[in-house]
Amino acid sequence: MPSFLEGLPFRWLVLALFVPVFCRAQATYWVARGAVAGASRSRWGRWLDSAAVRRGSALLDRWGLPVVTLSFLTVGLQTIMNAAAGIARVPWWRYTLAMVPGCVAWAFVYATVGIALFWAVLAAFAGSPWGVVALVALVVAVGAVVWSVRRRRRVASGSGP
């Protein structure tokens, strides 16, 4: 855990984690909401029309705002769901009512096991030169898989290589 968070009472640790995730979620919502009008004329237009955003919007359409709350318990879905709520122009107060419990859950998870697990894995890998090599190899492998999957999807959709 970062040294500035060590030694904080649990409630202050949860609050210290809640504030940034709350601000990030609100910023994502407002950027997406504001970008919808002029997106087609900017570089963000392609992202707003991406498959990931379409899937997020479909989840929001199908399951409603509880998906926003639950997205905070996943990795990689939070930003998409917050943006999807902004794109769908969900009223701010309804979005915030769904978002706050998710932020609280995220803060509790990271205050208890999330950050500790992250730092434990990092320390285990970085404890030796071979651990650093393994960590770098893991990052490169994940990057290669992500790149390969995206490339295959582009080729399959006919967008080219």
Rank of each mutant, 00 (worst) to 15 (best):
L48V: 00
R33F: 06
D49G: 06
V36C: 09
A27T: 11
A35P: 08
L70D: 02
D49I: 00
A52T: 12
V67K: 06
R54A: 11
A39C: 10
A27Q: 01
L65Q: 05
V31M: 14
Y29A: 13
A27L: 15
W63I: 09
R43W: 09
Q26R: 03
A52H: 11
L48E: 04
G45R: 06
W44Y: 12
R46F: 04
W47N: 03
V31C: 12
L60R: 06
G34C: 13
A58N: 02
A37H: 15
A58Y: 05
G56L: 04
L70V: 12
V36E: 04
W63M: 04
G38Q: 13
R54T: 08
A32I: 04
T69Q: 03
G45L: 01
R33L: 05
P66E: 09
A35D: 00
R55T: 11
W44T: 10
L70I: 06
G56F: 07
S71G: 08
S57A: 13
S40H: 14
T28C: 12
G45K: 01
V31K: 05
V53P: 02
R54I: 05
S42I: 07
D49Q: 09
L70E: 03
A39T: 01
S57E: 14
S40G: 15
S57I: 10
A35C: 01
S50H: 07
W44P: 01
G56H: 00
D61S: 14
G64D: 11
V53A: 02
A25R: 04
A58F: 00
G64F: 09
Q26V: 13
F72E: 02
G38D: 12
Y29S: 11
G34F: 13
D61V: 06
A37Q: 15
R43L: 12
W63P: 02
G64S: 11
V67Q: 07
A27C: 13
R41Y: 12
L65G: 10
W44F: 13
D49Y: 05
V36T: 13
S57Y: 01
T69E: 08
A52V: 07
W63Y: 15
L48S: 02
A32H: 04
A58K: 09
S40D: 14
W63R: 11
A35R: 06
G34S: 14
G56Y: 10
A39G: 15
S42G: 07
A58D: 08
Y29V: 11
V68L: 11
D61R: 13
V68W: 04
R43C: 02
D49V: 04
A37M: 12
L65D: 09
S71R: 05
A52D: 06
L70Y: 05
T69C: 05
T69Y: 03
D61H: 05
L65V: 06
A52P: 03
L65M: 14
L48Q: 08
L60G: 04
W30Y: 15
V68G: 00
